[in-house]
C-alpha cells in the first residue's frame, strides 16, 4: 500500500498542506498500538472493519472490551458492508485555523451502519450541505497524513454491492 509514501510526501510540505480536502495532517491519528488499529489496518486495504463480540456477534462500541449482550470478552474485528444511513448531521461552520484547511463549512455525520455500529465521520469530499437524517450513505475513505479515515459519500455514485454474499460480518483478512 502507498500510505507510507504519502505520509512522507505530505510531511515534507508541512502541516498546513496535505492530501485531505478538510484537515491538516497534524490531526492524523497515531495508529501504531492504538485501540482502533484494526480499523485503520482495514481502512488501509479499503475495507471497513469494525468490532463484534466473537461469541454472539453483537456489534460493539469501538473501545468496548466486554460484550454487554453475553459477557464475552473476545473481540472480533470484521469487515462489514460499507453502507449506512444518517442518524444525525451538522454543518461545522467554525474552522480552527491551522487545523481545518477547507474554506467553507463542512459536514459531520453520525452514521448508523448496516452492521449495527454507529460511526461519526465527515464526507469524502467537500459538500455544500449535510444530508438529512435517514438518508443513505456509502462509506469510503479519506487520506489524512497517510492514514485512511472512514468517510461518507451521500449520493452513492459508486456501484452498489450487488451480491448478497455478505461483505457484512465476514472476517477481515489478517
Amino acid at each position: 500500500m502507498s500510505a507510507g509514501l504519502s505520509t512522507e510526501t505530505s510531511r515534507e510540505t508541512g502541516t498546513m498542506t496535505g492530501s485531505d480536502w478538510l484537515l491538516a495532517d497534524s490531526l492524523a491519528p497515531i495508529i501504531e498500538g492504538d485501540v482502533l488499529q484494526p480499523l485503520y489496518d482495514g481502512a488501509a486495504l479499503g475495507q471497513l472493519v469494525l468490532p463484534f463480540c466473537a461469541s454472539c456477534s453483537l456489534p460493539l462500541d469501538l473501545e468496548q472490551q466486554v460484550c454487554d449482550g453475553c459477557g464475552g470478552s473476545d473481540i472480533a474485528w470484521r469487515r462489514v458492508e460499507p453502507v449506512g444511513i444518517v442518524h444525525a448531521a451538522t454543518m461545522m461552520h467554525r474552522r480552527e485555523p491551522g487545523l481545518v484547511l477547507a474554506s467553507a463549512p463542512y459536514p459531520i455525520l453520525d452514521v448508523e451502519l448496516g452492521s449495527g455500529h454507529r460511526l461519526v465521520m465527515t464526507t469524502a469530499d467537500a459538500e455544500l450541505s449535510a444530508p438529512a437524517i435517514g438518508d443513505p450513505v456509502h462509506i469510503t475513505f479519506r487520506d489524512l497524513g497517510g492514514v485512511r479515515i472512514p468517510s461518507a459519500r451521500p449520493h452513492n455514485p459508486e456501484p452498489t454491492v450487488t451480491t448478497s454474499t455478505a461483505l457484512s460480518q465476514t472476517e477481515a483478512p489478517a
Binding site: L27, A28, D34, L36, E63, Y106, I108, S151
Partner: peptide, 10 residues
C-alpha cells in the same frame, strides 16, 4: 482512540 478518530473527522 475513538476521540482521535472523531477529531480526524473534523
Amino acid at each position: 482512540g475513538t476521540r482521535g478518530l472523531e477529531r480526524a473527522s473534523g
